[in-house]
């Protein structure tokens, strides 16, 4: 087990260290998230009544778009200096690489969301202190980072990767996005048809499914 976990920790620490020294990803994602909310405010010309209705949607569009940007960067760094080849040549399993990269993306996105959430709460007038909301964010972000890591590893090898990643990512992640928006709606006290606690287990199930499929496919995709 240690053989499996240690490389994940090393990979994760490497990404955190790069981020601590360059600080380019988290800061730009924060600003991007804010820009999305401001753009939505003008695009929807949001009145206070409308804001409560569309808040979950704005929140998740901002998070999802920021997530795609983060995923775009995840493997670019590895690709630029031939780091991915080095990773593949090193005596660690493909699963460790996958989970290490996914864990790094997961942590960066959670960090960005943790900073953005109180700001959004202030701007859009809702209370962020909800257990359901926080659990929703954690579960949905897990799904995003798992699927995103796989497609980032694929799209980084292709031409026009910045365009290809969202095209691949969003249709596949749609169930998680639907679950996240609905669950957020419940957490914020909006009216939903579905009973309480329906979406959280579903989100967990989606995560488990994507975790199994994506880490299997990742090992096939990178072995070439």
């Amino acid at each position: 087990m240690n053989e499996f976990l240690r490389p994940i920790g090393v990979l994760l620490w490497k990404d955190i260290l790069i981020e601590l020294r360059s600080r380019d990803l988290v800061v730009s994602l924060l600003v991007f998230g804010l820009v999305v909310v401001v753009v939505f405010n003008f695009a929807l010309n949001a009145t206070p009544e409308l804001v409560t209705e569309v808040t979950p949607g704005i929140l998740w569009v901002a998070f999802a778009f920021a997530g795609v940007l983060a995923m775009n960067r995840a493997f670019v760094r590895e690709k630029e200096e031939g780091g991915l080849d080095g990773l593949l040549l090193s005596p660690i399993s493909r699963d460790s690489i996958f989970f290490g990269k996914a864990a790094a993306s997961f942590i960066f996105m959670l960090l960005v969301e943790a900073v953005l959430l109180p700001i959004f709460a202030g701007l859009l007038n809702f209370s962020p202190a909800s257990f359901t909301l926080i659990l929703t964010i954690v579960l949905a972000t897990l799904g995003f980072s798992v699927v995103g890591t796989l497609f980032s590893a694929i799209s980084v090898q292709t031409r026009s990767r910045e365009i290809l990643l969202p095209v691949l990512f969003f249709p596949v992640i749609l169930p998680v996005l639907v679950g996240a928006v609905e669950s957020t709606k419940q957490a914020l006290g909006g009216d939903t048809v579905v009973g309480l606690g329906h979406w959280l287990p579903l989100l967990g199930a989606f995560d488990a499914l994507f975790l199994v499929i994506c880490h299997w496919i990742f090992s096939i995709v990178v072995e070439e």
């Binding site: 796989l150 694929i154 090898q157 292709t158 691949l168 249709p171 596949v172 499929i213 994506c214 496919i217 096939i220 995709v221 070439e224």
Partner: peptide, 11 residues
């Protein structure tokens, strides 16, 4: 071929 197979399965 291999990327297509990945997308074919996960899709």
């Amino acid at each position: 071929a291999i990327y297509g197979a990945a997308m074919g399965i996960i899709g």
